[in-house]
Nucleic acid binder design. Structure first.
Length: 857
DNA sequence: ATGCTAGGTGTCTTCT
DNA sequence: AGAAGACACCTAG
């Protein structure tokens, strides 16, 4: 049965009251089968009214007429409605109750209103007869308390908000977004004023009931679409926990049960359940860093308890040769098996037992190879083997669609369970918390990635990046068959090193833009069944895949990425990007972009009133303002959408955030177009274009119609930072390193010769060059070994140095803008961000003609 | 109330 | 003024 409530805040008490409900009933639901053709067989709706409204005069009559289409019970008061609902639930006696945000809203409201109206037999919402109502949570809570959840005991509750959070990644998990993204349908969100207004006519009130019923359908269909129950059933049967708890989320508990079963079966005594609050990571020996938990609520993130995966320093840039991506299949579960890591197999070395170096991984001893696999590896092996088996079954001929789905869900559940095993070892509140084991697993992971990198490099290949379990190689080839061959060769070499651990080709990229650790885009190549190759964009970590950037910034960024990856020439790419930016700048300023494109979405990690610094966080401010108006309140875990507006004030942008509805209802608010161009589009695009020659922050700013001067400095700073990095990695050629330097020219000291010898850029290291080019004088007639005349060469070097110092102190400066090209000595009085502004064009900044090259600063 | 760590980026505050 | 640090979010794996 689905449960969907309609609520409205009381105009006097401002407390939410229940005014309507719509339920769908399916008496023959199978939780081990895919969605039935008919989502439900029966339904009913109930509608009452707030105290200060009356039903339209012909409402009852019209409801009767509608009764063939829609069964509606009209009830005079909330009390009557709740009584009716409880009676219905009691009569239907559902095994499963489906809803959206039941644990975050509906259940709490229901219990509060039952309480306030003193409805008898409240416990009928569950299957256990109880007299005392569980303690209700008072308002600023983040969801139903444990005791509240117990109210429905005996019935499973499927809260699709919780399920969706586990199963799909979305911008937000409110019903509007879920309906749109999962069902591709529109959900009508009504604010409480609109709901109140609907009592003014029969047609509108019927429409309200209808919408409530439609929402119920959406909820049910989302559950079907996500296969929530089949998956929960599989997980439950794998872990041996309780299904109603599987549906409530929380991976640790499932794992706990799996291990409890495994250890008990082998006659181990399992760890006690701890009821007392454990202090997370008690590292506080001295006053040094007394745990950096943010906020007192314990909500904020702790300081990491141990080291995790290794991320290789990326060789940033744009690649247009094939890139090979190799990846260890489920690394952590494999490590547990490969090294037989278990509570029962890992011991501390003798000398470490007495000492207090608990955290020292070196004090752990890996079991010898002949030791029987422990419980943990065995369980993982069982999971992996079952999965392989199920995948085998899926390949059988003549399977029904239903069977394939069933197998697929089981294989997914097995994978999920195996993969969550590691996470639970590192979970502070887990019954099987084992920091040393978790730390050991990640350490082995780092070791393996490092070793793989070394091995690949030893094959004379160019490793450009790697993260935790993956490695990317620049093949420098344009022949895909060759690249595949290479991939297989590497695969063979790496896999030789391990019994069970396996690396595999995870992808081949035709082109790739590598910006930072965990930030890249690529065009992956796939061979279709017809043998033809197709490409697909993959974007990881970039601003454009994050929910906290506006749609505008994301769509422009998207265009930029596709253009860069397209394989067009650099000039064309730059041109296309520039013209697109021009267009966007214009459209934004002319107000031709729809408001939705300006929405920025952020999640509240706490209840809005719990933030210590509410003022400067835009989403918190918006949430607080919305909450003060009543209705459904935003709480921790919810996402807030807002736009930055021009509101007449000159507050910082972060304090000019408004909910889109506020913008729609106001005539004084306007989208802050400058903010969106300068703080949304610009940073996103300039980061993407960072490795692209021919454009930079100031160009991009100019195209968008922003003042380019402000960005020049930043662009230069980034360039310098880049130089420094290149220098650090010693990978840079000397050409690049000394590109701003004048070459040293010496004259052959031979009295009759005086042949000019330019010390050209050496191939490898300055020393080697000097030896080679200052050997015998290039003049055939001159027999001199130039380098032997140290004194003469030394003098010439001194003269050259003095000459340069003199030039430096003459202080000639040149305008950075090539088009202006002014050359002056007098320091102007106008400065822009610490740089002198050219007095002749008033735009560019002046750079010293002879300066200190940036890498040497 | 409850999976982990690594990493980038924006905004505000504090220090130099 | 600019660097440095705290904090907040979101993502990769």
């Amino acid at each position: 049965m689905t449960l969907n409530l309609r609520t409205l805040p009381n105009t006097k008490t401002h407390q939410n009251e229940i005014i309507g409900a719509a339920c769908l009933i399916n008496p023959s639901f199978h939780m081990d089968r895919p969605a039935p053709e008919q989502p439900f067989q029966q339904h009913f709706c109930a509608i009452s009214k707030p105290n200060d409204c009356i039903f339209p005069w012909d409402f009852n009559e019209k409801v009767q007429k509608e009764s063939r289409k829609m069964k509606v019970e009209v009830l005079p008061t909330e009390r009557a409605l709740l009584g009716f609902l409880l009676a219905k639930i009691h009569k239907i006696d559902p095994d499963l109750i489906v809803g959206h945000d039941i644990y975050g809203y509906d259940l709490d409201i229901l219990l509060h209103r039952i309480n306030a109206n003193k409805i008898p037999h409240w416990s009928k919402i569950g299957r256990l007869k109880r007299t005392v109502m569980p303690k209700l949570s008072s308002y600023p809570s983040r969801g139903a308390s444990h005791s509240e959840k117990s109210a429905m005991c005996g019935r499973m509750v499927c809260d699709i908000k919780i399920s969706a959070k586990e199963l799909v990644r979305l911008k937000s998990f409110d019903l509007t977004e879920l309906t749109l993204q999962i069902l591709k349908q529109k959900h009508v969100e009504l604010d409480f004023e609109q709901i109140r207004n609907m009592y003014s006519s029969t047609a509108m009130l019927l429409h309200l009931v209808e919408l409530t019923l439609i929402d119920s359908c959406h909820i049910l269909n989302i559950m079907y679409e996500l296969n929530v129950l089949p998956l929960a059933l599989q997980i439950t049967s794998i872990c041996g926990n309780i299904m109603s708890r599987t549906l409530m989320g929380g991976r640790a508990e499932r794992n706990e049960f799996l291990l409890l079963h495994a250890f008990t079966e082998k006659d181990f005594i399992v760890p006690d359940k701890e009821y007392k609050k454990k202090v997370p990571a008690p590292v506080a020996d001295e006053e040094e860093e007394v745990d950096v938990t943010k906020g007192k609520s314990g909500q904020g993130r702790r300081k990491p308890a141990y080291a995790g995966g290794l991320v290789l320093e990326p060789k940033k840039g744009f690649y247009d040769k094939y890139i090979l991506l190799l990846d260890f299949n489920s690394l952590y579960p494999s490590i547990i098996q490969e090294y037989n890591i278990c509570f029962t197999t890992i011991t501390r070395t003798e000398q470490a037992k007495s000492a207090e170096n608990e955290d020292d991984l070196l004090s752990l001893e890996l079991p010898s190879a002949d030791l029987k696999p422990g419980i943990l590896p065995t369980e993982i092996r069982k999971l992996v083997e079952s999965r392989r088996q199920v995948k085998g079954l899926m390949k059988q001929e003549g399977l029904s669609h239903e069977q394939i789905m069933q197998y697929d869900i089981r294989q997914k559940a097995l994978k999920l369970t195996a993969n969550s095993m590691y996470g639970c070892l590192g979970f502070t509140f887990s019954r099987f918390y084992a920091k040393p084991l978790a730390a050991l697993i990640t350490m082995k992971g780092r070791e393996i990635l490092m070793k793989t990198k070394d091995l690949v490099q030893a094959m004379n290949l160019d490793v450009i990046y790697g993260d935790t379990d993956s490695i990317m190689i620049n093949s420098n080839s344009t022949d895909i068959n060759e690249v595949t061959k290479l991939g297989n060769k590497i695969k063979g070499e790496v896999n030789k090193l391990y019994k069970l651990l396996e690396i595999d080709i995870d992808g081949i990229y035709k082109s790739m833009l590598l910006l930072k650790k965990k930030k890249y885009a690529a065009l992956s190549v796939h061979k279709g069944p017809d043998g033809k190759y197709t490409t697909q964009e993959e974007k990881k970590g970039l601003d454009i895949v994050r929910r906290d950037w506006s749609g505008l910034a994301k769509s422009v960024g998207d265009y930029v990425v596709s253009t860069i990856l397209s394989g067009e020439s650099r000039e064309t790419v730059v041109e296309l990007i520039h013209s697109r930016l021009n267009e966007v700048g214009e459209q934004v300023r002319e107000g031709k972009i729809p408001v939705e494109e300006f929405l920025i979405t952020k999640q509240l990690t706490k209840n809005p009133e719990d933030y210590p610094d509410k003022k400067s966080l835009p989403h918190v401010q918006v949430a607080l303002r919305l909450n003060s108006k009543g209705g459904k309140r935003l709480k921790g875990g919810d996402t807030v959408a807002y736009v930055i507006c021009e509101d007449g004030s000159n507050l910082a942008a972060s304090q000019r955030a408004y909910h889109p509805d506020e913008l729609a209802k106001s005539d004084s608010l306007k989208i802050d177009t400058k903010y969106y161009l300068a703080h949304q589009v610009h940073p996103v695009v300039s980061r993407l274009c960072d490795p692209i020659e021919g454009t930079d922050a100031s160009h991009i700013a100019e195209c968008l119609g922003l003042d380019p001067a402000g960005y020049r400095h930043a662009a230069q700073a980034r360039e310098e930072a880049g130089d420094q990095e290149l220098l650090d990695t010693v990978k840079v050629t000397d050409e690049e390193k000394y590109r701003d330097c004048e070459r040293l020219m010496v004259k052959c000291p031979g009295a009759t010769c005086r042949r000019e010898i330019v010390l050209d850029v050496p191939l490898k290291g300055a020393d080697m060059y000097i030896e080679a080019s200052l050997g015998k004088c290039p003049n055939e007639q001159c027999p001199l070994i130039v380098a032997k005349n140290h004194v003469a060469i030394g003098n010439q070097l001194t003269v050259a140095i003095r000459d340069h110092i003199k030039k430096y102190y003459q202080g000639w400066m040149k305008c950075e803008d090539m088009a202006c090209g002014a050359r002056v000595r007098k320091m102007p009085l106008m400065f822009q961000r610490g740089h002198p502004v050219c007095p002749s064009c008033n735009k560019g900044v002046l750079n010293p003609e002879v300066g200190i090259p940036s890498p040497l600063k």
